[in-house]
Amino acid sequence: MTLQNQMNKLVKIDNTFESFQSLIDFYENHKDMQFGEIHLELRPLFAANMSAALGAVLDKFISNLNAIHFDYVSPEIEVILSNNDFFTYFGKSRLIDTNTNTIKFQKLKPTDGKYFKKYVIEELLEGHIADLTRMSNGLKERIIEAIYEIFVNAQIHSETKFIYTCGQFFPNKNKVEFTIVDTGIGFREKINNRFGSKLKATQAIKWAVEDKKTTKEGISGGIGLSLLKEFVEVNNGKMQIVSNDGFYQFDDDGESLKMFDGEFPGTIVNLQFRTDDFNNYTLKSEISINDIF
């Protein structure tokens, strides 16, 4: 077996650093190929939300007019990627979703804000009744706002052609995962272009998640990611950012940063929230309406 064939087996892809590294290896291995045939095997397991990242990588190959062949997909992964509509985008027949835990794979243009709203309502607010009824309205609102902050960040900053989203409810584990991926310029280039700096990807991500840090010119910002981080902390959730060769994670164990070998062609933001979070998010804040400005 050649090295290239080995690289095209994606095995045990979940949300670990090593799983992201496997996707990056797969991308690096074929990023310069044109008019080629790319063969892929997906073997247990494959976390549904990671189809957003895989879809982004496959689209990079397809934009170079390569053909993608799924040589082997293990039966349980076949069910997941059919149910979440992923395979619809990659040449397989569309199936009717019978799995209510799935949050569909979606490929949107950055200008498709209205479609994203419909998707959020159908997939996160009105679908999945069994999971959602357990969550308070305040929690649902916080999760939707967090997801929107990331979507809007990708719209404003990434210079991507498409934004890829996907997710999954885990009723038995009381959590929901949601992933937003772009194939734009990444945190590092965005920040270095703006400030003429030479930050590494990890330094760029760490800077961007700090409060009030923005690359926007002439207008303040930089609140979305720090609000998200604060919510993740209260919720006992997790956030991961993969951008180029940088990896950032924030969870119960605090912040951690690592570098990948090779680069992801854009940014992945992976969010995990607890659905059994009984904090009162509608509690009246101490801010008076007369004391905002």
Partner: peptide, 18 residues
């Protein structure tokens, strides 16, 4: 909303500093 108020206050405080 309450969460809107919190977000708006953050936006305003950030803008003043910026």
């Amino acid at each position: 909303s309450e969460s809107g108020k919190v977000a708006l206050k953050r936006v305003v405080d950030t803008a003043k500093l910026y």
